[in-house]
């Protein structure tokens, strides 16, 4: 793992879910918020300030970039964001990190005992 990727980890929940939302294509702010809300059952609160604060920091960190609106977009005020190569690598590294932790939990039979309730 490259050191600059390592420096970004672990990701905060907000950054992780924004990257995840952008992983399948460019989105504007409100769409990102809606996707994070639905994918986390509203567990990650994401108001306008929280979202754009995170977007600002993520652009500064080189994780995402602003991109042009798709031709189908009717509201020209909307700005779209997409993952760049570095952002995708960081997301993959974070998912690998989480996967390792899940494997450890499975080995310790934590998930099994949790599911049995």
């Amino acid at each position: 793992m490259k050191p600059e990727i390592n420096q970004q980890l672990p990701l905060t929940p907000a950054v992780f879910h924004i990257l995840l939302a952008l992983s399948d294509g460019p989105k504007h702010g409100y769409l990102i918020m809606k996707e994070v809300e639905s994918s986390t059952d509203n567990m990650i609160p994401m108001g306008p300030g929280t979202l754009y604060g995170s977007i600002k920091r993520m652009i500064e960190a080189g994780l995402i970039i602003e991109t042009t609106s798709p031709p189908t977009e009717t509201d020209q005020r909307r700005r779209y964001y997409k993952l760049n190569h570095f952002g995708r690598m960081v997301l993959e590294a974070e998912l690998n990190r989480l996967q390792k932790q899940i494997l450890i939990a499975q080995k310790k039979n934590i998930l099994g005992s949790f599911n049995r309730g």
Binding site: Y30, K34, P48, L51, Y52, I55, K56, R77, R78, R79
Partner: peptide, 24 residues
């Protein structure tokens, strides 16, 4: 009252997102 750096960059987007939330 939001931080000025955020308002300068994303003031319009913040308002737009709020509008969309209201409509939704």
């Amino acid at each position: 009252f939001y931080p000025q750096s955020l308002r300068n960059l994303y003031g319009q987007q913040l308002l737009l997102m709020f509008e969309e939330r209201c409509q939704d």
